[in-house]
Simulated scan of single mutants.
Amino acid sequence: MKKNKIDKIIISLTKWIGITLLLGIIIWSAIFFLKGYRYEQTNDAQVDAYLSPINAKVGGYINKIYYKDNQQVKKGDTLVVIELDEYGLKKDAASAELMSSYTKLPILTANEETQIKSIEVIKAQLSGAKAKLSQQQKEFDRYKNLLADESTTQQKFDNVSASLSITQSDYDQTKASLQVAESKLNDFKSQRNAIKAEIKIKEALLQRQELDIKYTVILAPFDGQIGKKTIQEGQLIQPGQTLAFLVNKREEKWVIANFKETQISNFKIGQAVSIEIDAFPKEKFNGIIESLSPTTGSRYSLLPPDNATGNFVKIIQRIPVRIKLKDTSKKLEKLSAGMNANVYVLKN
């Protein structure tokens, strides 16, 4: 009797389990086909976000690293420090060159003052030479008239004429000396402009060296979470080298869904989208279609397919669709770039 009762209980349980499983399959099938009827869907989708690279502006050996894998950082936090010795020496050299250029100005000023005084002396000499020339010209004219009246000898006239030529030569020489002195003064003024330009260049070079020293300390540009650490202390890095990636948790995130080309014929910009994230299966995320790629995903590959070569096998292509997430920033903070998603686009 007891065995018959147990058999009946087992048969009853088996029957109810079978009925439950059948109902579950029916309900799941109904939901699946209902979704397939109402939605265009794909599980080839991922969350995406901007990854900001942290690059080195100057090269050198890494002195200290102040972050760890996946660490949260604040804007202005020190991430990496590069050894300073070489850049300190370059700054000292640039500073010394700038001081050398500055010392040229007092010397040039003294030369200008000396040249100005020389010009004043030559001008005084020129005035005397001009007066002497005027007097000698008058003497020449007087003897010329006397010679015409036969009141003097030819010898005296020749002596006066020679004196006039000598006086004229002295005057011309003094005048030329004045022009040379003034030209030299202008040269000094040009040198001053050249030295001022040289000083500006060396000031800029010194500022550049100071910037390089500043760049040896690499700071976080904004609040976010650092990625994987791929560098080590003592490592030699080059200018422009990527040291890490920083993700801003509060910045815009979106989903890239790769739909089959047969699914997108009725897609429109602004169309509502429902999203399920594998990491959070109990939550729904909302979005809208922001844009559709102008080409299939295969066209972005390193070696895009060429159907004109070899035998042709038709393969349904996929079109990347960018979906803008519309939920609150607080809700989207927990999403990480690369998370898998299921995307459902309501059919019109």
Rank of each mutant, 00 (worst) to 15 (best):
S100D: 03
E112D: 00
Y143A: 05
A94K: 08
F157R: 01
G76M: 00
I65V: 14
D141F: 09
T109L: 09
I54Y: 04
Y87M: 02
I116E: 14
R142F: 15
L108I: 09
V73N: 09
S151R: 15
K123T: 13
V47A: 07
A56Y: 11
Q72F: 08
E113G: 02
K57M: 12
Q155S: 13
K75V: 08
S134D: 14
E97H: 02
L147N: 02
I54M: 06
L51A: 15
N70D: 05
N111W: 00
L79N: 10
G59Y: 05
K130S: 15
V80R: 06
E150P: 06
S165I: 13
V47E: 06
Q173I: 10
N63Q: 15
L147T: 02
K91A: 15
A110C: 00
V80L: 06
D92A: 11
Q71K: 05
N70P: 00
K91G: 06
K138W: 04
V58E: 04
S169N: 10
F140C: 09
L108K: 03
K90N: 13
I116V: 12
I119K: 07
G60S: 07
Q115P: 03
K75H: 04
K64Y: 02
A110D: 01
K74Y: 09
S127D: 14
A56M: 01
K138S: 11
L89N: 08
E112Q: 01
E150S: 08
T103H: 09
A162Q: 15
N70C: 04
K123G: 10
A94V: 07
Q155N: 10
L98G: 04
S165Y: 05
S165W: 01
Q155K: 10
A94E: 02
Q135D: 14
S52K: 14
S100K: 10
N145A: 08
L89Y: 05
A93N: 08
